[in-house]
Computed example of a mutant assay.
Amino acid sequence: MSELMRITHLTKEFRVSKRASFPAVDDVSLTLQAGETLSVVGESGCGKSTLGRLIVRGIDATSGKVVYSPSAGVEKAAGEQGEKQPAEIDFLALKGRALKRVRKDIQMIFQDPLSSLDPRMTVFDIIAEPLRATSRMPTTELRRRVREIAEKVGLDPSHLRRYPHSFSGGQRQRIGIARALVTKPKLIVADEAVSALDVSIQAQIINLLKDLQDELGITYLFIAHDLSIVEYISDRVAVMYLGRIVELAETDQLFAVPRHPYTETLLSAVPQPDPEVKRERIVPKGEVPSPTNRATGCLFSPRCHYATELCRTETPALEEIADGHYSACHYASELSLRGLAELATTV
């Protein structure tokens, strides 16, 4: 795989008063490889949706860089000529026409398939809107592209003149996926893309996303809180807590051998479908702290069962402790934390 996007020291601070602010995203650094699915998980309010919006420039970052490599994952035949593209683009620094040219490569699927669709627009116009905003495509070509992408996501092209209220929740999310795909993006940020759907529909949409990735080579940043879905769809997983990445690893490794106490608590909360198997629940101490009243040292230390004085006074860095496995815990190499299988016991 080649590197599609490099996020370095990305920070977003929100001001709560004239003198006080808090970082919703705090010095986050990640890489996205072309064609992979990187999931970002954590409790509500941890900053994962804010991170997604920063990457697509839905909101402006306070500091940091998002470097995009447009040629990543693209293989050209010998002698093939095409528009020369820079090896790397500082996406957050782009303006005007330069931003419009690149924006079509980075799209987003939103959480609520109803509120994200304009009820006054037909499905055709909703899907076509990104094309009209980023290119001057002839009408016949635009119609062909919209019909093609509608069929690809499982929509009936004969229904394109209908309005969003005529469709079910799953169909509306297919409309949102078609809108994101119509510009042929390299990266799609899927922000809780299935959390508002019924379980049976969730499975259909997740399988659709995987099929589209296999066919089109799309890279996903998949934001979610349901770890059972994350385990199924992800190549790698990043765990966020109060705006910071506290663990990052390949999916199998993170679910089997977590290296941060917060990850262990999240895994213990994964629902167990087998009634004869019980999963031990590890409940963090206390309540989720206010983002404006953050602890010194490790942010998780007030709720951690393994915390020591070192944890309360010194901030741990996100460091590689095994091949491709990163953790921001002082005792990551010493603790024997339990994975998904070890937390389950037969009744």
Rank of each mutant, 00 (worst) to 15 (best):
153 V>I: 13
10 L>W: 04
97 R>D: 14
304 C>N: 06
312 R>V: 02
24 A>W: 00
295 A>S: 14
142 L>Y: 12
19 R>L: 12
88 E>F: 04
21 S>Y: 06
218 I>M: 11
95 K>L: 04
256 A>D: 14
122 T>P: 07
169 G>K: 12
9 H>C: 05
194 V>G: 01
181 L>S: 09
316 P>M: 10
178 A>P: 10
189 V>M: 08
190 A>V: 04
287 E>M: 03
297 G>D: 07
32 L>F: 02
324 G>K: 12
92 L>R: 01
87 A>C: 01
87 A>P: 04
73 G>T: 13
278 K>G: 01
296 T>G: 02
324 G>V: 11
306 Y>S: 04
225 H>M: 05
261 P>H: 09
56 V>F: 11
211 D>T: 15
105 D>F: 07
203 A>S: 13
46 C>G: 07
121 M>K: 14
283 V>A: 04
196 A>T: 06
39 S>V: 00
26 D>Y: 01
317 A>Q: 14
199 V>D: 00
322 A>W: 09
104 K>C: 13
198 D>P: 09
37 T>M: 09
289 P>C: 00
341 A>E: 15
164 P>H: 07
136 R>N: 15
277 V>I: 12
328 A>R: 02
91 F>V: 06
338 R>M: 14
286 G>V: 05
235 D>Q: 01
305 H>N: 10
89 I>T: 08
219 T>R: 07
226 D>T: 08
247 E>T: 05
144 R>M: 11
258 P>E: 10
330 H>Y: 02
205 I>A: 06
178 A>N: 01
184 K>L: 11
149 I>F: 04
170 G>T: 06
263 T>V: 06
18 K>V: 01
248 L>P: 10
277 V>K: 13
286 G>E: 07
191 D>V: 08
167 F>Y: 13
84 K>T: 14
276 E>F: 01
42 G>S: 03
240 M>K: 03
326 Y>I: 00
119 P>F: 03
233 I>N: 02
260 H>M: 06
3 E>K: 14
335 L>I: 12
334 E>F: 01
324 G>M: 05
280 E>M: 09
176 G>N: 02
18 K>T: 06
82 G>Q: 07
55 I>W: 10
88 E>G: 04
319 E>M: 15
144 R>N: 13
199 V>W: 00
248 L>Q: 09
326 Y>E: 01
30 L>H: 10
179 R>T: 02
323 D>H: 13
147 R>C: 12
317 A>W: 03
67 V>H: 07
1 M>W: 00
133 A>W: 03
100 K>C: 13
42 G>W: 01
42 G>D: 05
60 D>E: 15
328 A>L: 03
54 L>I: 11
259 R>Y: 11
164 P>N: 07
95 K>Y: 00
25 V>D: 00
276 E>I: 00
247 E>R: 09
273 P>C: 03
38 L>Q: 04
127 I>L: 13
182 V>N: 09
229 I>D: 08
227 L>P: 08
146 V>A: 14
83 E>V: 10
126 I>H: 05
